[in-house]
Each structure stands twice: as C-alpha cells, then as structure tokens.
Design a protein around this nucleic acid. Structure first.
Lengths: 190, 190, 190, 190
DNA sequence: GATGAATGAGTGTTCATTCAT
DNA sequence: CATGAATGAACACTCATTCAT
C-alpha cells in the first residue's frame, strides 16, 4: 500500500491559499487548485470530502494558528492596558509575517463559505481575550459597552489597517502601529 | 430610434440588488437576473457591456446615493464635532432606511468585482468630508494621523455595526448609535 | 430572436434513441447524445429540464404512439377473440415497423428511470383493451384471473417474442405470429 | 503462497448482490462494493479481472444454483405434466426463498452486462428440462413450436409474476401459483 | 495476498455571452 | 430595441483501474 503523502496534502493547502489570494474564492476551482498543486482533481477528494471541506478546513487551521499567535505572552495578571498592547502588537506581528495566510482568512470571511464554519468553536480560542475585556469593564478601565461594539473599534480597525488593498496609504511601520493603538485605546478607555 | 426603456433598466437594477441579497454574488447569474427582471438575458447586454459592468455600475450608483445621504445638512461652517455627529447619524439613518442597497454594497465590497471600481472617482463624492477632517487636524481638534487610519476608526466601525451578520448582538437603537459615536469620537479626538 | 429549431429537437430525440439502442442507457451520456445530434450539450437543456426529463419524455412520447398503434381498428362491438386477434397483430406490426423505438422502450423499462414515469397516465391509453378483457371475463370467454396474470401471458410473451436479443431463433413471420397467438389464446380462454 | 481468502470472496459477492439490489446496477461502483464488503477496491481485482467479470461471475453462479433448484426432484420417468408441475412450483419456491439472488439476476438481465454472458453455457444447465419439452412434443402432449416460443409462455410469465415491481397486484400465494400454472399449461398443451 | 493512495477520463449541469430574427 | 435560442468552456465531483508498498 502506498502511504498517504503528507507532502501532497501540504501542496494542496499551499495551492489553495495561493490561488485564493491571487484570483479570489469564486474563481478558485477545484481543478485549478489541483493543477497548481501538481495533483489530480480526484486526489483532493481523498483528503477532503468536497470543495467546501477543503476551504473550510484550511480556514479553521489558519485561524487556530492566529489565535495562538495573538495570545502569545498572554499574562492575565498584568494591567489591562499592557495586555491589550501586547495583544495589539502580536496581531500586527503575526499578520506581517503570515501575510498570505491572513489574506486567505480575509477572503474567506467575505465568502459565502464563511457561514459554514462553526464560529463558536473558532471563537473559543479567543476566549481569554474576551475575559480580559470583561475584567476591564468591571474594573472601570474601559467603557461598559457590548462586546461587539468593542470589537468594532479593536479587531476590525486592526484588520482594515492590515489589509493592503483597503489601506493603500499606510505602511505597517512600528510607529504607525503604535499610533493606531492610541486611537483604539482612546476609543475604548473610560 | 426608440429610446432605451428606463423602466427596463430600473427593473434590471432592482433584480440585481434583490438577487445578490438573496442568493449572493456567486449564484447571481445573468440569466437569473434577467428572469427576475422579466427580461431576456440579451437585453441586459444592451444596457451593460457585460456582467462586470452591470454589477459595478449598480454599485457605483448606490454609492453615489450614499454619499449624498451622508452629506445631508452638511454645513462646513459648524464646529467640527457637530459636523461629525450629523455625518454619523446620517450614515446609520441611510443604512436603516436603505438596507437592501447597503447590503448590496457590502456584498459587492467583498467580491472580486470590487477591485474593478474606480475608487478614486467614488471617493471624490466624499471629498467634502475629507476636507472637514483635514480642517479638524489643522485646528488640532482631532489627531494628526493619515486619512486611512481615521477611516479605520470611523467608517469601518460604522459598517461593521450596521452589518447584521457580523454584529448579531447589537440592535441599531438610537442609544447604541450614540454610544458608538462616543467611541469613534474618543478614538480620533485629540 | 432565433426561433426554436424543431429540427434540433427532433435530432436530439433521434440521437437519444439511436445511442440508447447502441450502447445502452448507462453509457448514453448527455454529451455523447449531444455529439450524436450535432448539438452543444447545453442545447439539450433548452428543450429538457435535465437528463431524466429527456429520457422520460422520449419514452412517454413513443409509448403513446404505441398505444395508438395497438388500438388501430379497435371495434368493441366485435367478438372478443376478433378484437384480441386484431390487437395481437397490430402489436407485432407496429414493433416490426418501429423496431428502434420499440427497443428504446424495452431498454427504458429496464432502466432505473422507469420508476419516474407516471405509469397510471401511460396505462390510461390502454384502457380500452382493459375494458375488453373485463368484458371477456364477464362473458365467460376468458379465465377469471387478475389482470396482471392475463398480462403475463399476453403482453409479456408478445414483448419477449419481439425482442430479437432474447428470442434469437424465432423470426417474426406471419406464421409464427399466428402460432404464438394460439398459445396466448389457449392460455387465457376458458 | 497464501491461498485466496474464500471468506473475502464470499463477502465481495454478498456485497455485490446487496448493493445492486439496494441502489441498482448503475450506482453500484467498485469502491462502494469494496466498502460494503470491508475490503479494499484493489482486493476485488485479485479475485476478478475487472468490474464486468465481478458482475458476470456473480450472475452465472446464482444462475447455476437456480438451475439446480428448478430441477429438484426431477424424474424424467414421470408423466410430462407432473414434471412440468414440479418444475413450476420449484421455480416459485426458489424465488420466494432466494428473493435477493433472484432480484440480482433480474437486474442483471436488464443491464448491458447481460450480453457478455455465455448464454449457451448457462442454458446447458437447463438441458434436462429442454429434453423433457422435446419429449412432450414427440409424444404430442404439447404443441410443436420452437423452444423459444414455449419459453415465452413458461419462463417469462413465471419471471414476470415473480417480479414484485411489474406485478404489484398479485401475491405469490399457493392458489395464485396454481392458477398461473393452468394458464401456462393451457398455452403449451396440445 | 492485500491495501489505500493516486489518477485521467468521464459525469450531469450551469455559465457568460452571441447570434439571428 | 428586444428577444429566446444556441453554445463552448467551465464547474464540482465520481468512476474503474493501477501503483507502490
């Protein structure tokens, strides 16, 4: 028996990420991905149940890595602002180092496949950050507004600023990241 | 020569918006749009060069209406914060009253067609607001950061909060809009 | 507007019948049928909802013609045996003259598509014959057994004898048909 | 050298019969059969040259068992009608007790694979019955017509009446079988 | 002997677009 | 201006079969 070629699965994932970044979700057909990965279209169906499974699995895998990166050096005993600052820089750090994976998740989030993800499961990885936000509210360090509203002024600006297509005029220099942090902080702080 | 039937063109636009909202960009094929508009597929090609042209034109038209709505009661002689406040409420007002058009632009922005828009032309309509922001910076009322960074804490949070898919827990009550305004204002103010 | 080319639809039907007879139902793919009809695969979907629709519609159409042929010169006032004899010869006459259509229905009946036909509707065309059988029973001319059992000794032997694949040793000469009629008649008569 | 695992081959045959009965010939792919038999697709190719060989071999094997069953208690010294009666009841007895195998042969006969069978070889097993028929003709007990015509009024009605799909209104009660025997007998007897 | 990975060729179907009227 | 017929190319996916172990 031939053993499952891990190299092949990795090639499929890389091809998927590359193609989606280059030509978008809609145009990334199974056969194009297969060709990019130097693999038969049928081979993809050995590793994934169908196209949806391929795209969703790839997304979930990347997203988990992101959550780990964001929570690096997470120390809930530190002051709220320090935690938030670390979190902020971790985010931009990960994104700048993993541009292509990040871009994939961006595209994915805006695709109809996004609805098929078990978002609750994905968000679970971000729970520590959520608890920190709640503590910030309790300690009257930040404004007492719904979680989604805080997110609108933290995560989404972060995503926008990292998106080179949407933010053509801003380079992600350390200075710019610090500056943006100030705006985010001013937005949520009490 | 018969003139182009304005009624037909309007029907095509309405069908496009409706279908994209209901079944998404990917599934909205030309023939489905034609059927929805009670028109032959070929007819669409009289009014638009191709599918891309149809979708992009529809987007630009909606976007122009949005810019007009946002700048309603625009009075550059008022204090900066007042202008900004009016602008903020105009935005949510327009979105709540034109949900279907807004949803279309959301879907469009996340589609690959988005790149085909002449964004500079679209943004021109927002120029008055841009000038106001510049004046705010000059008058040291708001932070001196690039325009895109301000946008990341003004327009995008506004879009996120208006997107019922992304913001399931927040209703757009007057109170919530006011509260969100505070965060946006704190973010940009000096 | 181009008008619907009746010639094209006829070509599709002919190609379907021909291919099914030559290579069977399973192997008769839409694209092969299209090629045989000198037509694009997509064209078939203008005339038929899907493959199933194409095959079923073709079957029903042929079957209706058969029912008309079988009931030619049908005169319910004649004695039972005469009616039955006319019916018997009509059947073999039609089959010998429409071999390819008859073969198609044979193939169709044995395919999984057969279950999709509204058999009640198809059998309605044979109702006159059914009534005659009932009258035969009432007049104590033929045995009082269920309709399906009569059919097993009338219609099915007729079909078998007409099927050159199953009945290689018998030619459908007038003598043979008369001889077979005797067996059928002996089977059902009281 | 390890010997071929008889248990495995039997599992393959059972899986084939089961699947063909459940989902039909067309849908019964090699890999599905393999899965049903808890065996690798490749294993099937150890026992059979290809898919065709698998299906045909299975058919021939079942058909042989049928011929044995039909000729149970076969005693050529008895009167013709007695032999024929025993034969008739053996048939329905076998079918009712081996429904799944019988159904498989039904499906098979109607598939394109049927043409690949060496029918002469299969029919050889029925030779004793053939000889009895010939004797019946010689003794002027039954009509002097070709073998295929006799078959059309013996074997095929038997098959039709046993096919629950084609004969929905008749249950195979002892009475019905006796009644049908009368029709068959009347058909062929002189 | 036995296996699961691997595949090219094929499936039914829909697509954006053009043609002839 | 307006149309429905027509199409080649593409889609996601499955197939019977072979390969390497």
């Amino acid at each position: 028996m031939r053993i499952k070629d891990e190299h092949k699965q990795e090639a499929i994932i890389q091809a998927t990420v590359k193609l989606v970044n280059e030509i978008g979700f809609v145009s990334s057909s199974v056969s194009k991905i297969a060709k990019e990965a130097n693999v038969s279209p049928a081979t993809i169906y050995i590793y994934y149940k169908n196209k949806e499974d391929l795209l969703v699995s790839t997304y979930v895998e990347i997203k988990q890595k992101l959550s780990v990166a964001l929570l690096k050096n997470f120390d809930s005993s530190k002051p709220f602002m320090d935690i938030f600052n670390t979190f902020w820089h971790n985010g931009f750090d990960y994104i700048s180092k993993n541009r292509k994976y990040y871009q994939y998740t961006e595209q994915f989030s805006n695709s109809p496949y996004s609805e098929l993800v078990d978002h609750i499961k994905v968000e679970k990885h971000f729970e520590p950050m959520l608890k920190v936000l709640q503590r910030g509210i309790d300690q009257k360090v930040i404004k007492d507004v719904p979680y989604d509203m805080l997110a609108a002024f933290i995560f989404y600006p972060m995503m926008i600023l990292s998106n080179s297509k949407l933010c053509k005029t801003i380079e992600l220099t350390s200075d710019n990241i610090d500056q943006a942090f100030l705006l985010a902080w001013d937005a949520i702080k009490l």
